Computed example of a mutant assay.
Amino acid sequence: MPNFKELLTFEYKNEYESAYDLSVKRNFSNPKIYSANGDLKKRWYVYFSFRNPKSGKLVRQTPFYGDANKYHTKEDRLSILVTYRKVLLRLLKKGYSPYADNSELHHQLRSKNEITSTQNLSKDENKNSEAVSDEPKMTVEEAFDFGLKLKEKILSATTKRGYENKIKNFLKWLKVNRPEIKNITDLDKKVVTTFLNDVLDRTGPRNRNNFRTDLSSIIQVLVDNDIIGQNFIKKIPPLKSIPERNKTYSQDLQEKIFDYLEIEDPILLLYIKFISYNFLRPIEVCRLKVKDLDLKHKKLQVKAKNSPLKTKIIPELLWSDLPDLNKLDKEGLLFTPDKIGGE
Rank of each mutant, 00 (worst) to 15 (best):
residue 99 Y to R: 02
residue 102 N to Y: 04
residue 66 G to A: 06
residue 107 H to P: 00
residue 61 Q to A: 03
residue 87 V to H: 08
residue 60 R to V: 14
residue 72 H to W: 01
residue 91 L to I: 04
residue 58 L to E: 11
residue 97 S to R: 08
residue 49 S to F: 05
residue 104 E to D: 12
residue 48 F to V: 06
residue 80 I to G: 02
residue 106 H to S: 10
residue 69 N to I: 02
residue 93 K to C: 11
residue 84 Y to H: 05
residue 71 Y to G: 00
residue 104 E to R: 10
residue 102 N to S: 10
residue 67 D to G: 02
residue 86 K to L: 09
residue 109 L to V: 10
residue 59 V to D: 12
residue 63 P to F: 00
residue 56 G to V: 07
residue 107 H to Q: 13
residue 75 E to T: 14
residue 99 Y to V: 04
residue 87 V to A: 08
residue 100 A to Y: 06
residue 108 Q to I: 03
residue 90 R to E: 15
residue 86 K to D: 11
residue 81 L to D: 01
residue 88 L to M: 15
residue 64 F to Y: 13
residue 59 V to W: 01
residue 79 S to E: 11
residue 74 K to R: 15
residue 94 K to A: 13
residue 99 Y to C: 04
residue 91 L to H: 10
residue 88 L to F: 12
residue 87 V to F: 07
residue 102 N to R: 03
residue 103 S to G: 13
residue 97 S to T: 12
residue 51 R to F: 02
residue 77 R to I: 09
residue 67 D to F: 05
residue 79 S to T: 10
residue 103 S to L: 11
residue 105 L to T: 06
residue 66 G to L: 01
residue 75 E to K: 15
residue 94 K to C: 06
residue 93 K to F: 12
residue 90 R to F: 12
residue 105 L to F: 00
residue 80 I to L: 06
residue 102 N to H: 05
residue 78 L to Y: 13
residue 71 Y to K: 05
residue 87 V to S: 04
residue 109 L to F: 00
residue 97 S to M: 07
residue 107 H to Y: 10
residue 71 Y to Q: 09
residue 84 Y to S: 01
residue 62 T to Y: 00
residue 106 H to Q: 10
residue 56 G to Y: 02
residue 51 R to H: 04
residue 48 F to N: 09
residue 62 T to C: 00
residue 79 S to L: 10
residue 79 S to K: 14
residue 57 K to H: 11
residue 48 F to M: 09
residue 73 T to K: 06
residue 88 L to I: 15
residue 99 Y to L: 04
residue 66 G to R: 03
residue 86 K to R: 14
residue 106 H to V: 11
residue 66 G to S: 04
residue 54 K to P: 12
residue 89 L to E: 15
residue 83 T to K: 02
residue 87 V to K: 08
residue 61 Q to K: 07
residue 82 V to E: 14
residue 90 R to L: 10
residue 52 N to F: 06
residue 88 L to E: 11
residue 50 F to Q: 12
residue 60 R to W: 02
residue 100 A to I: 02
residue 54 K to N: 14
residue 54 K to M: 10
residue 100 A to K: 15
residue 102 N to G: 13
residue 92 L to W: 09
residue 104 E to S: 09
residue 91 L to E: 15
residue 63 P to Q: 02
residue 88 L to R: 08
residue 74 K to Q: 14
residue 62 T to S: 06
residue 95 G to V: 08
residue 54 K to I: 14
residue 73 T to A: 03
residue 58 L to Y: 04
residue 53 P to I: 00
residue 73 T to V: 02
residue 105 L to P: 13
residue 68 A to Q: 09
residue 92 L to V: 11
residue 89 L to D: 14
residue 75 E to G: 07
residue 98 P to S: 08
residue 80 I to R: 01
residue 56 G to K: 07
residue 108 Q to D: 07
residue 76 D to G: 01
residue 86 K to C: 00
residue 50 F to N: 05
residue 108 Q to T: 00
residue 87 V to I: 13
residue 48 F to A: 06
residue 104 E to P: 03
